[in-house]
């Protein structure tokens, strides 16, 4: 088994930002804010966040904010809760949350809660349990969770629970590891994990590990590096991560590296991208791979960043 080609990955992540001429880069322009979060968090886990000019990033992030308080995926695009969270997370990485008008961002997120407790992604009203997690996380980072109806928010997430113990996008939706991560995360952040049958969900999640050691997102699907994050973090939050074979998963992730040019792909020998590079590295961090910063499974940010935010207020010293 190879080792993590950390330096190559750093180089790859930095290079993606500069690449602008291929079709994929143009197609992805509208979600640059997500890309920034993936790339920068990966760099932080690798201990290389300092290779980036923080002021430049912060000023670009702020240029994506709208009057409404929400952030767009890139300059000129519309605000959406997806990018609002990424923006807040990026600012948190650099310890720059103080540049935010907290009330404004809070108002934007609070305004997206619906009567049934669910959240819309933006003014157009698409509802998805992903947005519940995003809203809860975003407000937690800003210490503003008490501004929404947490009880209703939790009840909506619980209403997305299925017979297999997992969660779907909306009530009745099929369980999917990404969705499970969001719902478990939302319940973790609100101290509501008692709504989960941990043994049932844990069994479903640990059965996501296939022969190659990789994890899939649903039964009878192919493994994919990104599920190293979605499945692993969910298993950790419900304390069942020992139910999978960690060594085999580490090997699978390392096998998906492009050891020549850096970056990690969904499966061995596929084309790399920054999304899978982040989830691969974050997965390795959850697996306690040496020399990586620990990442928090619910906040999806390095543990030291989370502690800085949560404990600073708590200790008030």
């Amino acid at each position: 088994m190879g080792e993590l080609a950390a330096e190559k990955h750093v180089k790859y992540i930095l290079s993606v930002e500069k690449r602008k001429d291929d079709f994929q880069s143009v197609v992805m322009e509208h979600l640059r804010m997500n890309g920034a979060y993936w790339g920068l968090t990966a760099l932080d886990i690798l201990g290389k966040l300092n290779t980036v000019d923080a002021d430049e990033v912060v000023s670009w992030v702020m240029s994506c904010q709208h009057q409404s308080g929400g952030f767009a995926g890139n300059v000129g695009h519309d605000p959406h809760i997806l990018y609002t969270l990424s923006a807040v997370q990026v600012l948190a990485l650099f310890d720059k949350l103080d540049v935010l008008d907290v009330d404004k961002v809070t108002d934007y997120v609070v305004g997206l809660q619906n009567e049934d407790g669910s959240f819309s992604g933006d003014i157009w009203g698409e509802v998805d349990s992903r947005f519940s997690y995003i809203a809860i996380l975003c407000l937690s980072l800003l210490h503003q969770l008490d501004k929404i109806n947490v009880e209703k928010a939790v009840n909506f997430v619980v209403s997305c629970k299925n017979m297999d113990g997992g969660f779907g996008c909306i009530p009745g939706g099929e369980s999917h590891s990404g969705q499970i991560f969001c719902c478990v995360g939302a319940l973790a952040l609100t101290g509501s994990l008692h709504h989960i049958d941990k043994d049932l969900l844990g069994w479903w999640l640990c059965e996501r590990q296939v022969k190659s050691g990789g994890l899939n997102g649903r039964p009878e699907k192919l493994p994919d590096v990104c599920y190293s994050w979605w499945v692993l973090s969910s298993l950790i939050m419900i304390d069942r991560v020992h139910w999978i074979n960690k060594e085999k998963l580490v090997k699978f992730i390392l096998d998906c590296q492009d050891t020549e040019n850096g970056g990690i792909s969904d499966r061995p020998d596929d084309a790399v991208d920054v999304y899978h590079t982040y989830f691969g590295i974050a997965g390795l961090s959850l697996l306690e791979y040496p020399a990586l910063k620990a990442i928090d499974p619910a906040y999806a940010l390095p543990v030291d960043v989370v502690n800085r935010i949560r404990l600073r207020k708590k200790l008030a010293v």
Partner: peptide, 23 residues
């Protein structure tokens, strides 16, 4: 480095403990 029980129990990091445990 990863605490698998951090959210399972009432942690000061979770919202429910926010007010209860003002240090």
């Amino acid at each position: 480095s990863i605490d698998t029980t951090r959210y399972l129990f009432s942690s000061p990091l979770s919202h429910s403990e926010e007010k209860e445990n003002d240090l």
